[in-house]
Amino acid sequence: MSHLPVIHPDNRKIFEGVASRRQMYALFNRHAQTAFDNERISGRCYAGEWFEITEADHDRMFEILPPLFYRGDVFAMRECVGGTVTSVFFALRIGGRPRWFHGYCNLSDRSSIDRMRAAIIERESQADRAMTRREKLDHIWSITANDFRAYADRRFRDDFRGRPNILVYCAVEGRMWKQLDELTDVEIAAKLPVQFRHSRDAAAA
């Protein structure tokens, strides 16, 4: 039985705050457990994801290998994560101060980098810093260790196949797997870092 593809909206923030170097590399590998299907081979499971990094890590990534191209406030890595999707790094001025970001863009779409730059600036310029439900779920997936998250494989029910699942604690059934998208508000609050637990849901960007 074929499984439904994981849907990835265009250009979305997957981590709240500035990622440390360790967190940055973990975010690079947030889809490491997914099957080598078309979503991963094409890079679609990465495309559009972005998060904030430090200036030091932005500069370090620039120095690791000669970039595919460097243009003003952006450069792209030569190695693609899949298909024509690759890491793109941004140095942007938002609210009067410099900030640095990483995102995955599909270079076969010439407008993908400009759209991501615009999405980052728009999101980070908002006065309301509340997280959307989607951002909360993405943050939970990003910070959860591999032992406690999984893309459902043949061990799971057919309707779970290929979808991101998280271990949750249920008072009646104990630990159980639950689809990430189906977490309740209480379960989301329990899995978020304490500073985000009581953040109300912002309107979807």
Rank of each mutant, 00 (worst) to 15 (best):
V18Q: 14
K178N: 04
V172K: 10
T54V: 11
A152S: 08
K191M: 12
N146T: 08
W177R: 00
T144I: 01
D37R: 10
L180I: 08
Y46H: 07
W141L: 03
D138N: 14
H58I: 06
A76W: 05
G96M: 13
Y46Q: 01
I94N: 05
T34W: 02
T84G: 02
H31M: 14
R134T: 04
D138K: 06
V74A: 03
S112P: 04
C105D: 09
L183C: 05
R97E: 14
V168G: 00
A171M: 08
I14M: 08
E182Y: 13
R115H: 12
A26G: 12
Y25A: 00
L183M: 10
H58M: 07
M1L: 14
D128C: 02
R197C: 04
C45S: 08
A150P: 00
F196Q: 04
M176T: 12
E49W: 13
W177D: 01
D159H: 15
E135F: 00
R123L: 13
N106Y: 15
A76P: 01
G83T: 03
N165E: 05
I143R: 04
D114S: 13
R21P: 10
L167Y: 01
R149Y: 06
R71K: 15
I166K: 01
A152W: 09
W141D: 00
D147S: 05
E173V: 07
S112L: 02
C80Q: 05
M131L: 14
G48Q: 06
F196C: 02
F90R: 02
A47Q: 14
D181M: 13
S199P: 00
R154E: 07
F51Q: 03
R44K: 15
F196D: 01
M1D: 08
D57H: 15
D147N: 03
R134Q: 05
A171C: 06
F156Y: 04
A145E: 07
R134W: 02
S125V: 03
D158G: 05
S2I: 11
I94L: 10
W141P: 00
G103F: 14
G43V: 01
D73V: 04
Q179N: 14
P98L: 07
R129W: 03
R163W: 12
V88F: 00
D59R: 13
D10L: 13
F62S: 10
R175Q: 09
P9Q: 09
S108C: 13
R133A: 06
A35C: 07
W177P: 00
A204L: 14
L192A: 01
R123V: 07
A205F: 11
H3M: 08
L180T: 05
E63A: 11
F101D: 00
W177I: 00
E63W: 06
